[in-house]
Computed example of a mutant assay.
Amino acid sequence: MSVPKFANVPHSFHAELKKRIGSYFEEVGKSTTGDYPIFMKAVILMVTFMVIYVHLVFFTPGVVMQILESILLGGVVAAIGFNVMHDGAHGSFSKYKWINSFAALSLNILGGNNFMWNVKHNVIHHAFTNVDGVDDDIDIQPWMRMSTTQKKYRLHKYQHIYFWFLYSLLYIFWIFVLDYQKYFKSKIGSMPLKKMKLSDHLVFWGFKVFHLFLFVGLPIYMVGFTSWLISFLIFTLVAGLVLSLVFQLAHTVEHTAFPMPHETTGKMEDEWAVHQIKTTANFATNNKLVSWLVGGLNFQIEHHLFPKISHIHYPAISKIIRQACQEYGIVYIEYPRVRYAVASHVAFLKQMGRAA
């Protein structure tokens, strides 16, 4: 499939949004990046991670405490991904490039690779959201069907039931399988991977080895194989489920669109910004605890339109974007509570499992 092209519209909706958002930041005199507020959040999450890790590995807690701490570790790892790595990878964590790069490297420490993530997420997913055949985030075939353009198998009839288990496997599969597939195939889905420099190769392998030492070798040496396996499975399954749910609730729900380019011209019907709004949904934006934990990714519309703006500003700019959508007659998709978004995702999966 060739790379789709978006409609080139004079006086585009995106241009109007950028004008209004730019005016807002000029008026309030704030930087678009996170800086000190997000630094404090990063410190809290990193310190919490280190305390739990050290206690599990070096102090051998009892079984009940081990399980509880492993569950908490999974949640903290996901939160670091949402709050530190994600903003860093988008260049919105700080106004200093080296700090953004350092924040993005947290993904490598946790087993992923920021080079692969940048191509998969920043380049492909953010440009071609929900476009089947291009957006790798909706390619879970043959295990799940996320669009009517994908082939349907009998097992998809039950995907709204077994998705909990599959989503839990995301983290393990990501760090032990998917990164290596991308690396050796030199492509993500149907899209070619950007050429890696020598430093990219060294970072890839160096951090993969470091991760194995930190999360496999050292813990097994300190607490034994069985104890390690219990904690490792619990924390990775929890992290995988949380990571999957947050990203899927943003794009694969009942009201989001899955547009395809014209068969002959390869052009999309809408301009890029309108496409982003039609394919993206917000959830629980009035819940400050949820917003804090998921790094503002419940404001997914704002994030997709302005990924270079830190998530700490999303509540403010969402009012501007919502008003603009109302003026231009564009539907702003939002679920007021997490459970409503989850219910819509389950309904969507059921629909995809049964629709022609």
Rank of each mutant, 00 (worst) to 15 (best):
F299Y: 15
L198C: 07
V274N: 09
E271I: 00
H311D: 12
S231W: 00
H303C: 07
L212Y: 15
L218N: 03
L233P: 07
W272M: 04
G189E: 06
T226M: 11
V294L: 06
T226P: 07
F207G: 04
E269I: 02
G217A: 10
V223H: 05
H255N: 02
E263S: 09
G296F: 01
N282Q: 05
F207K: 00
K185I: 03
D200R: 00
E269F: 12
A316K: 06
K278L: 14
K278N: 13
K267L: 07
L297S: 04
W272G: 06
I277Q: 02
I277H: 11
P259K: 03
A284S: 12
L198V: 12
T226D: 15
I320Q: 04
A281S: 07
K267G: 04
W292E: 13
F306H: 11
P219W: 02
F235L: 10
L297A: 11
G217K: 02
Y314D: 11
T280R: 07
L297Q: 11
I188G: 03
I277W: 03
T256F: 01
V238Q: 12
S244N: 01
F210M: 09
S244G: 01
T264N: 11
T226A: 04
A239C: 13
T285C: 11
T256Y: 00
L289V: 15
P261N: 11
F283C: 05
P219N: 09
A250S: 13
L233N: 02
F204H: 05
V216I: 15
E271C: 00
G224H: 03
E263C: 02
L218F: 13
I234P: 02
H311Y: 14
I277S: 09
K308Y: 15
S227H: 09
G296L: 09
S244K: 10
F299G: 00
P219L: 07
N298Q: 08
G296E: 12
N282C: 05
H255K: 06
H251M: 08
K267C: 09
A250M: 06
T236Y: 11
V242W: 10
I230H: 07
I317S: 01
H304R: 12
A281Q: 11
L218W: 06
P259T: 04
W228C: 09
M260E: 15
I220K: 04
L245A: 06
G296N: 07
E271Q: 00
A316G: 00
F258C: 05
P219D: 12
V209Q: 04
L289F: 15
G217M: 04
E269P: 03
F247I: 04
P192D: 12
F213T: 08
